[in-house]
Structures are given as C-alpha cells and as structure tokens.
Design a protein around this nucleic acid. Structure first.
Lengths: 217, 217
DNA sequence: TCCGCTGAAGTTACATGTAGATAGGTATTG
DNA sequence: CAATACCTATCTACATGTAACTTCAGCGGA
C-alpha cells in the first residue's frame, strides 16, 4: 500500500522554485537552466522541465522557444491592469458571498477585522498583512464559485510577484475602513452594495498604484 | 539560418490534441495515454507529456497523480459559475473599451452587428455565431488590458469545451438586441452604462443556462 | 576603436531506458 | 456462484542520451 501523501518529485521541485521566486532568491530575469537546477536540486532534468512548464503557465516565468525560461517580472502598468480585473472579481466574490453565506461568516469576518485593527495599532506589519489576506480569502471561499476562486488565486500570484519590487500599501487605516464598509453592506444583506463596497476598496488601491506611476522617479 | 516559424513538436502536439478535444474526437473522460498518443502521432513521449501538462493547466484535461490524464468535462453547475465570472469580465472589458477606443471601433462594431443581423435573418447558424464571437473579441481587444483578455480567453476555452454537451443559445434575436444596447451605451460615451449593458447581456445568457438546470429532464 | 568571425561551453528539445505502480482480466477459493 | 487472490499488460514518473542550436569570449581584420 502507498501512503496518501506521495508527492511527486515534480511537485516538490515546482513548489521549491515558487518559494525561491517569491523569496527573491531567484530574481526577475534570472535564467532557469534545466540542467543547472537539476543538479542543484539533486534530481533529473525531467521533473525540473515539467516544473518550469508550470511556472510559465502561472506566469512566474517567461519562455522563448529554444532560449529557455527566465523569472518573470510585473511592470507597474500590468499591475494596474491586474487590479482592474481584481476589482470586478472581488466585487463578484463579495456579492456571491452575501447571497450564499450566513451569520457564521459574518462573525468570523468581524473577528478577523478586530485582529486586523489590533495589528495595525501595534504596527505589526506582518500580522496586519496576514489579517488583510485572510479577510479576502474568507470572502472568496464563501462565494462558492470555483472559477472566481481560481482567478483570484491567479491574481494573487501576480500580486505577490510584483510585491518584490513594488509597494502596494494603500494606508492600513483606510484598508480597515474599507473592510468595515464591506462587512456593513454584507450584514445589511444588500448584494449590490456589498459588490460596490468591495470594488471601491480595490479601486482605491489601484488609484494608489496609478499615483506611483506618474509620481516618484 | 533557421526559419522564423520553427514550431516545436510540443506545440504541434498540443494544438492537435486541443483540436481533437474540441472536435469531439476525444470525448470527455477519454484517457490520454502518453505512449499510445506518441505512437499515434509519430513522435516520442516527451513532447506528448509536455502537451498534456499544458492541457491540464488550461483545464481541457484532468490529472490524477500516477493515474494519468483524461479529457475534462464541464458540468452545467460550473458552466453557470463560469458565466458569473464572464459577466463581470465582459462588463469590465466594455467599460475599458469605452474609455480607450474611438470612432473607429464603433464603426467596426456596427458593421459586425449588421453582419450578425444578416446571418440571423438567413438562419445561418455558423455565420451568426462567428459574428457574435467577433463582436465580443473586438471589445475585449479594445480594452487594452492583457489580463482581461487572457481571462476571457480562458473563459472561452471552457465554454467551447462545454458546448459539446450543452447548448448555450439564448435566442439569436435577443443577442442582437443586447449587442445593440451595448453599442448604444458605448456611442453615448457612458462607461458605466456600457458596463451595465454588457453585464446584462451575459447575465441573460446565464439565466438561460440556469433555466436548463432545473428544466428539461 | 569597432566590427565580424570562430570555436567552445552550455542549453534546449526530442528520443529512449526502466523501476515500480495500476488496472483489468483470469484463476482460485470458500 | 460470489468474493478474493494472482498475474499480466500497460502506464506513469523519473532518469539519461544526444543532435542541433544559442551564446559569448577571444581573436583578427578594417
């Protein structure tokens, strides 16, 4: 009998490369040489090749035929485009969450919001960012729509990649106010208002990014 | 010197398998055996394996570790979920198109709309469907947002896959009326109205699908 | 100094080898 | 006759072989 968790080498390599990219260990533009990585990781070239194909597909790497793959970067321009998409997807997720979810979710969201406030007051950047991500994750899971979850995961991957070079903080206090407005609309059981509040939240973050585009140089 | 078009075997195999899936030649649930396909296509196993990895990533196939891949299916439930996402993405694309595009696009859209009407009057299903797709493609290309284009392409892939088993026609005449309303809002230069009209169009199609869910059996 | 050539090193892309897992049919047992 | 054990064909996943291509450093000529 085989154990339930029988991770394939390919999966491990893929995860390892993802981690290294997000850690900044493999910076944007770094070449992903299959033989070199295979030796470094102590595996053969096949699983490395397959892992790279996956990275290319999730756009953590770019590939040119016969030239190999390099770690991708995210320009500020495309980050703004990503936030335009994120705006409508978070809006959708929030509307669906209102239509599907009950008391239980709202209570959990309030707890996370409390945790978020505490973290911001204590100037604990890590905890604040984590509470922020948890807030959004709870909502999109409550949407009960696998497509929107997948696409927002995709968006988040690109945002994480961009994070290494661009700052996306749009004022911690304002984020909490936005989140509070979202929860209020959800509690009122008003799907359209909830969608609007979620969209406004992301639109505001996008405006911050757009400000950076013309601003500092 | 090498020719500019030097398609890799992997690319050809990938395209070939995509075509066969959409043609219904490889029906949902069909096993994608790497050695069998390699022999059938007269290539080695490596490019076949890589093509299958790509199919899995674009969700034309599903894979279970150590069991291989099979051609994916799309349930009516997930097709509806896909249309929920499509609704907000087409809305976004249309709003952005209004903000970016000029006379030129509007003229082209009117032409396509005319072609669409002609095809519907002549009961030419193929031409009508093509005009329909062209209409939406023009708008999303005009949005000038690579992310929304990518995601709508993704949506369209799933819709095409679903087409083989589910009918998505929501009344050809109504489709034209919807498209006309979209163009009107675009001509008025009203981004919010254009977004609303596009969303209403897709929402109506989704309602048709939802009707099928409970209806015929 | 600048340009183009050349050859070596490294890499990609495809092909092939193979251990161990899986599925499905056949025999065997209660 | 049903359930179970076994057996074989096939496959997956990883490893490895190799021709052709890309890159780039170093050299020679304008």
């Amino acid at each position: 009998m085989t154990v339930a968790s029988d991770p394939r080498v390919t999966d491990r390599v893929h995860q390892e490369l993802r981690d290294r990219i997000f850690a900044g260990d493999l910076p944007a533009g770094a070449r992903l040489s299959v033989p070199a990585l295979a030796e470094r990781l102590g595996v053969s070239r096949s699983p490395v090749r397959e892992a790279i194909v996956r990275l290319v597909h999730e756009r953590l790497a770019r590939e040119e035929p016969r030239r190999g793959a390099v770690v991708a970067d995210v320009s500020l321009k495309s980050l703004i485009a990503i936030y335009e998409v994120r705006e409508v997807l978070e809006g959708l997720a929030t509307r669906l969450a209102v239509e599907n979810a009950g008391r239980r979710l709202l209570r959990t969201l309030e707890e996370v919001l409390g945790e978020h406030e505490r973290a911001v007051s204590a100037v604990d950047l890590t905890a604040a960012s984590e509470a922020d991500m948890t807030f959004h994750r709870l909502i999109r899971e409550a949407a009960d729509n696998a497509e929107v979850v997948r696409m927002l995961d995709d968006v988040q991957t690109q945002v994480r990649l961009a994070m290494r070079t661009t700052q996306v903080t749009g004022g911690p206090k304002l984020a909490i106010a936005d989140h509070r407005a979202i929860v209020r609309a959800m509690e009122a059981g008003d799907p359209a208002a909830a969608e609007g509040a979620a969209r406004a939240h992301i639109a505001r973050l996008r405006a911050v990014l757009a400000g950076q585009a013309g601003g500092p140089r």
